[in-house]
């Protein structure tokens, strides 16, 4: 396989996942630009040091690009990050999802949104972007051991936040985001 073919394979395989990650950081529009920039860097190194597996390395590049943007172009970054937050908080979608499912998702997202940024980053790399703990450590440039500790703590905090969120406003979440056929409120609303 020539380097160009290798690049095409990496591109086809990883593009959606890099775009998903970039979108989670800066929204879709800027995310596409960052994704493009990420693969431009990968392309320039295709004869050289693109490591295998490639995805964690690509996400690491994406992350650095976003940080660079944050430093250089703060205003643009803030707008983009706002859009990313909107996306990361939106549970409603597909018709056919029943209200309670949407509500559950909304509660989880709400719990997540309340965590420190470093927790959110780590948890979503694994739960949303499908990385193993070892791969997540590569993206975050820390050791696997350090990452295991961080992950343990982040999970604890998420569990607590989730319990709190479930306790506080299940009915509101359910009714606010119900789509499709209206359903009666579930019994938990009385709590």
């Amino acid at each position: 396989m020539t380097p160009a073919e290798r690049f095409h394979e990496i591109y086809e395989e990883c593009y959606p996942r890099v775009l998903a990650y970039a979108t989670s950081l800066v929204g879709r529009q800027v995310g596409e630009d960052i994704t493009s920039e990420t693969f431009t860097i990968a392309w320039r190194r295709i004869h050289g040091d693109v490591p295998l597996p490639t995805l964690p390395w690509l996400l690491g590049v994406t992350r650095n690009l976003v940080r660079e943007m944050r430093r250089r172009d703060t205003l643009r970054y803030l707008l983009a990050a706002e859009e990313a937050r909107r996306i990361a908080g939106s549970a409603e979608d597909q018709a056919g999802d029943v209200a309670t499912v949407v509500a559950d998702r909304q509660i989880a997202l709400q719990a997540l949104a309340g965590l420190p940024e470093s927790d959110r980053e780590l948890l979503t790399l694994i739960a949303w972007h499908g990385l193993s703990t070892k791969e997540a450590a590569q993206v975050l440039t820390c050791t696997s051991a350090a990452l295991a500790v961080r992950l343990y703590r982040a999970r604890r905090r998420l569990e607590k936040a989730l319990e709190a969120a479930q306790a506080s406003e299940p009915s509101e979440a359910a009714s606010a985001h119900a789509v499709g056929t209206p359903r009666p409120h579930c019994e938990g609303a009385a709590a």
């Binding site: 775009l19 979108t23 596409e32 994704t35 990361a88 948890l123 694994i126």
Partner: peptide
């Protein structure tokens, strides 16, 4: 808890929905 979180992933971040994005081939 990680499964709960995974299930809550917004659809806009689902790679399966981002394949063959118009921009992908153009870029």
């Amino acid at each position: 808890i990680m499964q709960v979180l995974a299930d809550a992933r917004p659809d806009e971040l689902d790679p399966a929905r981002l394949t063959n994005a118009a921009r992908q081939q153009r870029d």
